[in-house]
Amino acid sequence: MFLMQNALRNIGRQRGRYRVLMPLLLVCALLTGVFTSVAVPCRMAADRGSTYAEALDVTDEEVLAASEREDRARRLGESATLLSFSVLLVGAVAVLYVSSIMIGERMFDVGILYAVGLSRGQIFWTLFLELFAACTATLVCGLAAGRMIAGAYLRREIAAARLPEGILSCMGGGVAEMLCLGAALLILLIPIGKLTVRLMRTNPTDLLAERK
């Protein structure tokens, strides 16, 4: 319980350190959210094929327009998928980099905590909870905002008759976004893993000496 409180308080205090990590994560999450939320329904709608064309009471023009819309949806879906993957990749590298630096900076604090009498386990949980809470909150916000933006965009395109109407019903319950969240948090495991290894290996007195 004290661990939790302390982690949250630290996030508030360490604004300087999170000023880089948080916006970076937020932007990545936002872009990923937008692209994923566009890509998934577009592709699903396109894959479902042209049931529309088989209906008898439509004119040729309408059929043509419908298949054009589907084409557009397919193309949009493909490029959005590509974009979302590349953003995810860039974001992953950036997050990895920044969080490693942050942990590096915190090694001095770790030395203090050790000298003050915390066990390695407690130190690990302190840092882990702090990073995890900060990242999860940011990612969830970013992805949710991205999804809203994507929804608005799709609705506008439908209103302008550039995309098939059924597309919004394919947006789903946000499974794709949850997968993105999971992937991003998995990436976070790498620096945390490195932190653990470092914690286990180094002599605490060296950590305190480092700063001088």
């Binding site: 630290n10 205090r13 360490q14 604090d109 030395g111 203090i112 000298a115 003050v116 305190l208 700063r211 001088k212």
Partner: peptide, 11 residues
Amino acid sequence: FVFQSFNLIPT
């Protein structure tokens, strides 16, 4: 412990 460089957590 008490150290030469105080070692208080700055935040």
